[in-house]
Design a protein around this nucleic acid. Structure first.
Lengths: 215, 215, 215, 215
DNA sequence: AATGAATGAGTATTCATTCAT
DNA sequence: GATGAATGAATACTCATTCAT
């Protein structure tokens, strides 16, 4: 009896676990497909038909996993934003052996590599999601606000340590963020190769500016 | 007789001139309205009904002046791109009395003023037109390409004069452009006041970077 | 004084006469143009723009002469129907010297020549006006009804004279009309040349069928 | 296990078979409805709303089965043309016992019965589809071309057998076709009853005209 | 859970007609 | 009379979402 019950329970557990895993795999597949298709065609040009054709599921199935076209888009955006945030977390001005410049280069290389590895992600955040609707704009705004705050805080630290010029760090942080965003776009769209050289130039530009050192 | 004929001719001329002027005024009114409405609601969320309601004309009238919703959008984009190009032309590193820094500040202030005066224009180019369709993306790409080329050329000049560090000016030009775009966005969207201070910070950032001068 | 009055009246008359003549010329021009354009493009595919462009008048001018697109079509149809009726009137089985066969050939040649000279007319009646709306269908019905009645009457005469087999002349008259309509269509659309041979064949076909067999 | 699998497969098969059958029924229903409505109102006067109201389906459903209003019209036309062609196939001048006249009467009675049974079909081909657009005109042209060719061939056979007067059979075939078309129209529109008498008259009319006079 | 047929609200565009000049 | 800019009713088609099987 116990055995039977147990086996049933196990079965049940087994089944539900398997079911849940299947469910998750389906969701993931749909999200991956959506990232690709949205990035290729844009939000409005992407039909539900495109998504289900690419994922190989039936129309109704899509709605078992996502409430609406808008919902999967938001879910995707949230996920990508989280991934970007994660890629930024850990950028700390350490005080160990490596020079500030080297640390920055290493950090930014890691960041750029994330975007380079997923041009779809980049296109999605930089082009597809832009100007779509106020709610999405707000999420992007928050993303950039967070990145800006992080940079501003780092600059403030630098000012405290006497490393950074004492000026309007909020404005500067926006400028820094702008230069990074632009180079990410160049990296992915113009397909600039030599990520390392690009990042080094970017770091030097930010640290020392354009001017030749006075002689 | 001659007088009569003349007056008739004048009348005729007068009428056709007035008619044409009216036509042009209508087109302009529609373009202005479209810029405003597109910037507020985005391309897809803007219905023809929104445009004609805002312009106070009948549905058919719209199609008397523009072939389609898409056509007026493109016309608008072309016009704004031309305006931006024009606002940039004239940014020359003069060799007169004013210091380089002051010249740059003055120039960028003029540029920023253009965007500040028409937040709609900024929203249109920076958000509304982004990621809409390949043809539009191409136009934006060309705009930024031109701006980038202009900056890169200026940097190359600076290198020749020994003013600018001899590094990868193409990459640097993108970084410069990115910092400018971002601050324009901040200026218009976050409604950062004190345009002058912002531009001064931007110029110093670009010229000298973030680092405190070594002691 | 009288002279003045007279001259004024003459002027007036002259002017109004001239004006009316101009008016008629315009109407005619528009009707001619309409026949051509309707025949080329069909009723629904013909836009008022097509008519005024072809006639070289302004949009409003069209409506000075005709109440509507439908009105000019009806006027045209009435005119063409009248022309066809006229071309038929006079087809009488004379009893003079020429043989019946020769008379019929001569008569039908005249009829066919009318259509041959104006393929537009033929296209209009045989294709363009067909199935457009109940009122127009009625007019065509009446046209064919009249033609049918004329043929039936002629057959009845022939029966009385012992020339025509005594059968259901109403049915036969439809068959005769059908054969004529079809050959007109062939003449005009398939551009069958040698009108004379065609008509001779047609007459022989009909005669040898309708006549009581010679004994 | 096999049984279960089988039953599942059967179920599946059953479902898809039923689904497909349902699909076909829907298409047929829409085609039938369209034939009726188009014949009543004409192509341009028929709105999609008329079709779906008459069929009792939703707007989108219509487009699930047909690409456009134009597409269903063409499909209908093709089908009717095929039906007419089929009704003609088999009209062979046999050499068995029944007299030529009787054979022709029997054959034409069958043909006329087809049109009589579906006045909509007749109206569609003879009125609704006429003059609509070049592509449709071409299809009708081909239909009549085929019918003409068939008649001409039969006549040529008759000439060989010494049954038919040796004249321009191409012209005669058009005349014959014209007489038939006209009587079909009379039959259906004027609702001439006594199909048999009509056909007998038609055959006598044609035979006595086409046959070489008995000597 | 999976399917895909059915739904119907939503919208750009056309074009005959009007009317102020 | 002549003009042509303005009008707005009318309509085919799309596509996200639902729901019976």
């Amino acid at each position: 009896m116990a055995g039977v019950t147990e086996s049933i329970m196990l079965d049940r557990d087994g089944r539900s676990v398997r079911a849940e895993a299947t469910r998750d795999r389906r969701r993931r597949e749909l999200l991956d497909v959506a990232l690709r298709v949205f990035s290729e065609r844009g939000y409005h040009e992407t039909r539900i038909s495109d998504l289900i054709a690419a994922a190989g599921v039936a129309r109704g199935t899509f709605y078992l996993y996502f409430e609406s076209k808008n919902a999967i888009f938001h879910e995707l955006l949230d996920e990508l934003v989280a991934r970007i945030n994660a890629s930024i977390v850990g950028v700390e001005l350490g005080e160990g052996a490596p020079s500030l410049r080297d640390q920055l280069i290493a950090t930014l290389e890691r960041v750029f590599a994330v975007f380079d590895a997923s041009p779809d992600l980049t296109a999605f955040v930089l082009r597809v999601a832009v100007g779509l609707d106020p709610e999405i704009d707000k999420k992007l705004s928050e993303l950039y606000g967070r990145l800006h705050a992080f940079i501003a805080m780092s600059l403030d630290n630098g000012v405290q340590l006497g490393l950074v010029r004492a000026t309007d760090t909020r404005i500067l942080a926006w400028a820094v963020l702008g230069s990074i965003k632009q180079l990410v776009e160049v990296l992915v769209e113009r397909r600039e190769r030599d990520l390392h050289a690009m990042v080094a130039s970017l770091v030097d530009y930010n640290l020392a500016g354009l001017l030749a050192p006075a002689r």
